[in-house]
Design a binder for these strands. Structure first.
Lengths: 199, 199
DNA sequence: TGAAAATGCTAACATTTGTTAGCTGATTTT
DNA sequence: AAAATCAGCTAACAAATGTTAGCATTTTCA
């Protein structure tokens, strides 16, 4: 009886996926039941299946939409001429942070819950994630070669960068939030120049 | 019929918890069933209950053992005199990294799956985690006051540090692992001094 | 306006879930 | 050697799970 309210510019499927993203973030994919989701959408569980074909499909949509988003951006950055490696890294970092602030639920879910995808989506996502990290590592190695970046292990640097950014989850939960731009500047500065005060 | 093999210096309960930690890391707490766990232990599901009282208890043991471990260490570091803030931060970082390398499964699980604890354990853990971050933030703020650390937002720095370290998960999965000590040095260096080459 | 499509509902299904009961045989303790 | 504890088993449970079938109502649009 209770219809799913559909915002302009969004299908009912979009509403379901948005609510699902929120629940998947809070409780995890496996611990979220379809009845749970239905209740938050304001509908009976069976009714969801008029809009989606399975629980798995919801996760797939969330993960691949997000992954494509990041892939597009890194290609854009990488293709931009006249950019130093440090600038490229900064651009990627800022994009990650902005995404984490603007599309928190979906970005978080696709980062933490992609393991629950099933093949062939699972392998696909693994490949995509590996490729993404590899591209960043290449930028860093390029920067090292050109003397802009310290000679550190590039994969380690990538690993630190990406996980540091995902820590914005704690920021979201925090009581005394600092402004988004301040957070962004702080994160980029700490990662690029470190904690220690240069004397 | 098939008995649980018990290593010297370990009860059968310990064996179960160790196997559980591995499964919880791979598939998550909710997606791991007791029958799953039993199979990996080499026993029927019902037999597990001769050693543990519930699935929830397993998660509790993993989480609180790990949390206590980290709490002890930070108290020790914090109480050590004649240490600069940077040195304290380094000590904490190295401890985290070492724990991640040595007790990977349990550290990972207690970091990622504690949300599935139930009250009162859940609230307890939340409090403990908040307190832990607060202690590190205080060290950083102290370092800022003394001019050892750049004037950045301390909670942001904590968030970066802790999540960066948890990225060692990717290192574990990586094909071409660098040595543990090299990883440790790289991580500490990047976090403390940043990516950019000082000119 | 009337037909087609979309969206909701209730009921039910087959599995899977965590856990308990009750039993048998082994191991330890006295 | 007898008694007590430990550690495994099979069978079963109640609840929760994802999903489908079948039907009613509303919305869309020709």
């Amino acid at each position: 009886m209770a219809k799913i309210k559909r915002n302009r510019n969004g299908t009912r499927k979009d509403v379901i996926i948005a609510k699902a993203a929120k629940l998947f973030r809070e409780k995890g994919f496996s611990a979220t039941s379809m009845r749970d989701l239905a209740e938050h959408v304001g509908v009976e569980a069976a009714s969801l299946y008029n809009h989606i074909s399975s629980k798995a499909e919801i996760l797939q949509e969330i993960c691949f939409k997000t992954a494509n988003n990041f892939m597009s951006q890194i290609e854009e950055v990488d293709a931009t001429p006249n950019k130093t490696a440090i600038e490229k890294i900064q651009a990627i970092l800022r994009f990650h942070i902005k995404q984490m602030l603007e599309n928190y639920e979906e970005v978080y879910v696709s980062d933490r819950e992609w393991k629950h995808l099933t093949d062939p989506y699972l392998s696909n996502m693994q490949t995509q994630r590996r490729a993404y990290r590899q591209r960043i590592a290449s930028i860093i190695e390029d920067g090292i070669r050109k003397g802009e970046i310290k000679p550190i292990d590039a994969p380690t640097a990538v690993l630190i960068m990406l996980h540091a950014v995902s820590g914005i989850e704690s920021w979201h939960r925090s009581k005394k939030k600092i402004a988004g731009e301040v957070l962004e500047d702080n994160m980029v500065q700490i990662l690029v120049d470190g904690l220690r005060k240069q004397s």
